[in-house]
Every structure is written in C-alpha cells, then in structure tokens.
Design a protein around this nucleic acid. Structure first.
Lengths: 332, 332
DNA sequence: CCTAGCACTTCTTTTATATCAGTGCTAAAA
DNA sequence: TTTTAGCACTGATATAAAAGAAGTGCTAGG
C-alpha cells in the first residue's frame, strides 16, 4: 500500500513522462510535491525498490516500470470528461444517420489515429463465427455473374465470376439449392459441405454442374477469413521511442502479420489495457482494446501506441465509440 | 556516342551497384574489362565528365548518376528471359481460371513485392471514368437493404443501409427509376443527377421519398473514388539507401497520400521507367509502371523501389503480368 | 594507349577529453 | 523521525584528435 505522497508522485511521474518522453528528474517534480528534490529522490528510491519506477542508467531520472504503468492504470488514472474537441469531431461522424457499422468504425478509428498520433485497428468477424445466411446472384452480362454472400452477422462480400456456357437459370437453380440446404453453415465449413452435400445433387439437376461447382467452391475458399483494418501505422514513426530502424521494422512486420493481430481479439467487453510485454507486439508498446457488440455485428477495436501512451484519453475515446455503436445513440 | 568499352563498363557498374549497393571501384571491374585498374579509372573519369557516373566523395568509387541509369535503361538493358522461378510462381496465379481481374492483379503484385523486396501498387479506375451501369437492391431483413452499384467498367461496390418505415417495394421502385433514367452517368455526377432528375420524380411516386433519396445520395457521395492497393510497403525498410528514419517517414507519408499516388497514373500503355527525380516520390526511388487494358477494365500497375533497382527483372515481371491480363492467356 | 606506383583525399573507427544532468549518500536541521 | 543542503560520483553526450582503410588522380615509363 502506498502513501498518499507516493501515489501523487507516481501519478506525476507517469504523466510528466507521457508528456515529455524523458526520464523525470527529482527537480522537475519537487515543486509540485512541495518538498525538496532530496526528499523526492529518497521517495523515488522507495518506489524503485517496490518496482514501480526504473532508471535508464545509474544517474538518470526515473521512468515508470511496466508495473508502474499497470499501477497507474489500475489505481491512479481518473477518467476525466473527454476533451471537448475530441468529442465534437467524433460526434460529427456518429451524427450521420446513413452509415453502416463498419463505416462508423472505420471513420472514427481513422479520426482517432489522426488526433492521437497512435495506430488504430478494427478487427471484424472471423469466418468461423459467421454463418452463411444466403447467396444472391446478379447477372452482369452474358458470361459474368456477381455472386453475393451474406452472413448471419451481416457481413457481405461480393465476387465477380465468369462462367462460360451456363445460363443464368442454371446458376440460379444452384444458388437456391445452396440457400435451402446449407444456409446456417459456418463460412469456413461451406466448402466441404458444397462438396459432399451440394455437388452430388446438382450433378443430377444441373447441366454444367462441374463448372458451377468449381466456381462456388472457389468463392468460399477465398472468403476473406478476417476483416482487419489498420489505420495510422505511420504514426509509429512519430514517437521518439521508435526512432530506431530495427525496432520500426520489427513492429511494422508484426502489424502486417495477420496471426499476431488476431491474437489481439479479446473476449472481454470491457476496455482492456495491455502494457509492454502484455501487448505481445513490442515491449515498448501498449494496446488498449475493447469488444463492441451490436445486434448484427461484433468485433474488436484497438489502439496501439507507445507504452508512454495517453491512457486517459485513449480509454475515453474507445469508450465513447463503443457506447455510440452499441446503443446506437445518434443513429436512430 | 560511347565506345564499346564505355558501354560495357557502364553496364557493369550499374549492375554491380545494383547488386552490392556500394560505390564501384576500379579494382572491382578491371578484370571483367581485361585491363588495369588505372585504365578503368581514366575511362571512369571520362564517363563522369559526360555525366553518366558520379562519386559520393572525392576518393570514392563510382555510382551511376540519374542520367547514367537513364542511359542504361534506354540503351544497355537487355530483356533477358524471365527467370524460371519467377515465371513459375506467377503462372500458378494465372493458371487459376476462376478469378476476377482485380484478384489476378492483387495476387500477382503481392507476389512480386515478396519476390523482389520492392513495393507494388495497383491503381484502379477513377470514378469519373466509370459510368453507372445499374443498381440492384437486396433485402437483408425488415429494415436493412443491400445496395449494389455496378459500373460499366465492371467495378462493383456494395453498401448496407438501414431504411426505416420503407417497404422493399418502394425502394425497388426508386431503383428501377434510377436505372431507367440515369444509367450511363459518370459516377461522380450521379449525386447531382439524383438531386435534379430523380428527386422531383420520386417525390410524386414514392411515399417516403425523402428518406430514400437521402440514402442513395449518401451512397454515391461516398462511392470510393479510387481503388488504390499498395503491397510491400515495409520492403522499403529493407533497402540500405533508406536506413534513415526521416527519409522513410517522408516516403511512407507520400505513399499514403492519395493525390501523389494518383499522379502515378499513366496514359501510355508501354512500360515506363521513372528514375529518381522523375518518380516524384523521392530522389532515390524509381517507379516502373504500365497501364493494362482489358475488355472490361483498365488501370495502372507500378513497382516502386530504390533507384538502384533491378530494372531488367521488374520490367520483365510487369510485362508478363500485363500480357497475361490483356490477352487472358491461361484464363480461357 | 596502357599501366605501375605513389601521394593525396575522404570516410570510418577508435581513443581521449570535457561538459552536463541527475543521482546517492552523509551529516546537519527541523 | 523526517527533511534538506551539499558534494562526490556516474553515465550520457558532444567534440576533437589520431589511426587505418579504400580508392582516386596523376605522372612517368613501357
């Protein structure tokens, strides 16, 4: 248990370090704490002993340790009112009543990336969580068809396919067979159901069944397994802790790695803060994320920035978006 | 007019520099040229005089100047047979008969980025080049509709919209009005035609015309004006000439700037090489690009890399893709 | 016209030196 | 017991000097 002064001090050090990105010296904060720098130093030594502060070298000022950030986030951070400017800008997006959820998400997270200079990520549904609701087909011209796949969670994807020597009638027949027989199947199992349940049947009913089967097989095989959208990657280059090319290289590669990003997905619908090592991306980065859930859709949104991140602000922003999405305030 | 030996020498210097990324010394190439390093040095001095070579400092080896690269590309480069491995990998993509053009493009340019460690770009159509062919509407549930916009060049886009208190019938009526009256209109003019030609009419025929009009207006207002796809941006970090954070920052920002990328678009259907300053991106970068044109689609594909780029190989790769797309070899 | 040889230049790396910011500790003051 | 002033000490940073490496230009002779 920390004393009042220790709490106040840790809070000061975290916020100063967030602001200036330089180790915080005893001199810098002794005024605020109303005591001499020597007193601050001995108190700092105590906090370092506990493991909440660190030094970059023996005679440097202090920076928060991972545990220190954790303590700050869990105990010291106060969720102040979102700043008016941030609020205003975001509201412009949510005031628009005509967008679909993915658009609200993408616009607002893009805006956040710009405002904060961090990086934001929207993770859509995984294909095994989406079930086939129905397929539609639209004829574009003699040989080209537009196949539209709609899932139960409202995810829609379209693919144009060329099918030679096959009439629209036959394609439509196949489509309605699929809709009747395998709607409700998780997307990533559709391919195999096509093979074992549909193929034998259309073999009897449809003339050019081989061609049609192949086309549909392909469409579902390629169904984008995950909808990942990253905005503001370049902002990483703005942070002083990443002025090192090797580090940047590593982080950029991780942000391109779908598998690593998928791990970001969270079960929890609270706003979660993963600091440093916990982030699984880089020891100097923090990931703040939350799950949103609407009647038709769910997914994860995340903000990635340096460990030295403006925690209060980001948590506030994510919270705002999550709430606006979920109760549709301003949308209806 | 250069002598044979000068040509041979310039070619050697360019290819050595491309390989090693270090200024080429007289010693390194005197064996190949079958003369002493002193002879090479005096010949180098001549080529420098002409402006084809440069030094990085007074006692350094030589590197090609921009003019030197230009001369190399225009006169010395020989389009050797594409290497077997590259060819094989690309053919796997084009052998697949089921894809649509954008998929062939994206897959093959992604592959090229991986193989070469450069960055590739696909520029789709601009909205003023696309004309509205037709709209389709699919009902998802009571209040949600899927609006599908199809252009004459085969570009397709879908948007989900929520429209309250309006029946599918009314939406369909509006859709068929739009299809009858303004198909053929360039996409970026549709919004205004909607306002002046459609709005007055549906005002009479359709009950909730205000809501429907707003929805369609929004859909076309947001119609993605340009389809830009960049792959392999991180490869820039691998090139030794870009081991400088400020430079990387600048380049990454430019690659995010839609306006600058749009300038990459070319009129010419040949393969064009833009070296250094000509690239408009960075003095140390080269852009190699070409336009492809099929019966239904056209656009520009480009590879971006260091000035010290493997010109022969990239030109070969782009040529292969362009040809495969255009005559549909392997696709039918 | 070509080439061996050598002085010369610049870059790179290493070593040394000075300055600065900020700590830890001690002993005295509160 | 807690706080504070004072000071020696440490590591980071910047600048300078010195040594070594790479490669050129030039000259004189083949």
């Amino acid at each position: 248990m920390l004393t009042d002064r220790q709490n106040k001090m840790l809070k000061l050090i975290v916020s100063e370090y967030i602001k200036l990105a330089k180790p915080v010296s005893s001199n810098l904060i002794c005024e605020e704490l109303d005591c001499s720098s020597a007193t601050v130093r001995s108190e700092m030594a105590v906090l370092e002993e506990i493991g909440l502060l660190e030094k970059t070298h023996i005679s440097s000022g202090r920076i928060p340790s991972e545990k220190g950030y954790r303590y700050y986030v869990d105990n010291l951070m106060e969720l102040k009112e979102m700043n008016a400017e941030d609020m205003l800008k975001l509201q412009i997006i949510f005031k628009n009543q005509q967008l679909e959820i993915s658009e609200y998400l993408n616009y607002s997270l893009k805006l956040i990336a710009e405002m904060t200079n961090y990086t934001s990520i929207v993770l859509g549904n995984t294909s095994h969580e989406n079930k086939l609701k129905k397929i539609e087909v639209i004829s574009l011209n003699e040989n080209e068809f537009l196949l539209i796949v709609i899932t139960d969670k409202g995810h829609v994807e379209h693919k144009k396919r060329e099918i030679l020597n096959v009439s629209l009638e036959e394609v439509k027949k196949t489509v309605s067979l699929i809709n009747d027989l395998i709607s409700g199947t998780p997307i990533d199992e559709v391919s195999s159901k096509l093979e074992f349940e549909i193929k034998p049947i259309i073999g009897r009913y449809v003339k050019e069944h081989e061609i049609i089967y192949n086309t549909f097989y392909q469409v579902f095989k390629d169904f984008s397994s995950k909808n990942i959208n990253i905005v503001g990657k370049n902002n990483i280059l703005k942070q002083p802790e990443f002025n090192n090319l090797d580090k940047v290289k590593d982080i950029f590669n991780k942000l391109d790695d779908v598998d690593i990003l998928n791990k970001i997905e969270t079960d929890d619908s609270d706003i979660n803060v993963y600091i440093g090592k916990e982030s699984n991306i880089d020891d100097d980065m923090t990931v703040i994320k939350t799950k949103y859930r609407t009647s038709t859709d769910e997914g994860t949104i995340a903000i990635i920035g340096p460990k030295r991140m403006d925690y209060d602000r980001v948590v506030g922003l994510l919270d705002f978006i999550k709430n606006n999405l979920e109760d549709g305030t301003g949308r209806r």
